[in-house]
Amino acid sequence: MPLVEVRSLVKRFVRRHGLFTEPTIVKAVDDVSFTIAEGETFGLVGESGSGKTTTGRCILRLIEPTSGEVRFRGEDVLAYSAAEMRRARRQMQMVFQDPYSSLNPRMRAGDIVEEPLVIHKMGGREQRRDRVAELFQLVGLDPAHLRRYPHEFSGGQRQRIGVARALALNPSLVIADEPVSALDVSIQAQVINLLMDLQERLKLTYLFVAHDLRLVQHICDRVAVMYLGKIVEQAPAAALFNRPQHPYTQALLSAIPVPDPDADRSRIAVDEDRFDRAAPLREVAPGHWAAV
């Protein structure tokens, strides 16, 4: 059984323009299906407006999907009551993009990491304090800095605080939404290494939402490419990057600037005339699906 199963997920937003114009309906997520196996890193890539972030949030029900199914260990997450959902959230946690705005500036780092334990009434004060110190060490922070405020940490350290908070309840699934894109180049690799180490030590499953294709290629087992709310291609990482089948995937890959002055610079433009937006996904090779 896969850890996560998303089936025909749809999220519509109603966008109102003004008093006298008809509101338009935006299909942010349009019939999206995928599964994530236990211990896997599944990458969801796409540009702004592709629906990748909304998809991640629908799984945690931070946004309520319009229709579709989300199953976690076989159980229907969307049918959960509020109390059941709260319990389920211990199992599924989120790491956000911006370590500057996702941490409460008025709380001490130790309290930020402890907060989920307090909310979920885990352990007594002593036990929680020990757990927070342990989490600090786990993510490479100095427990001597527990009483510092977020602004006293660097961006990379702040993202470590965000990771420690996400891990406080021992989740099995972590949804990481652009976890390093706000960090400096020399710090990104540190945080990626941390995420890979933690996965191995804690047997974590990752849904990695990102626009940086080179990074996704490096750390993901399987990847789905989203374009305007739909998955247009899904495959094991190596197959997707070496043999992209969908014209949009091909355009996206050709757009990445390669850090090599002698690399091939030929680009493929995104040309919607070249593909059928209504085409269903079909299996073009074992495990490799494309809407072509």
Binding site: V185, S186, I187, A189, Q190, M196, Q217, H218, P259
Partner: peptide, 17 residues
């Protein structure tokens, strides 16, 4: 430190800040 090389391998990060 850029991603590349063997997929899944640790990146060669510059330590410190």
């Amino acid at each position: 430190s850029l991603p590349g090389g063997t997929p899944g391998a640790r990146l060669k990060a510059i330590e410190g800040t």
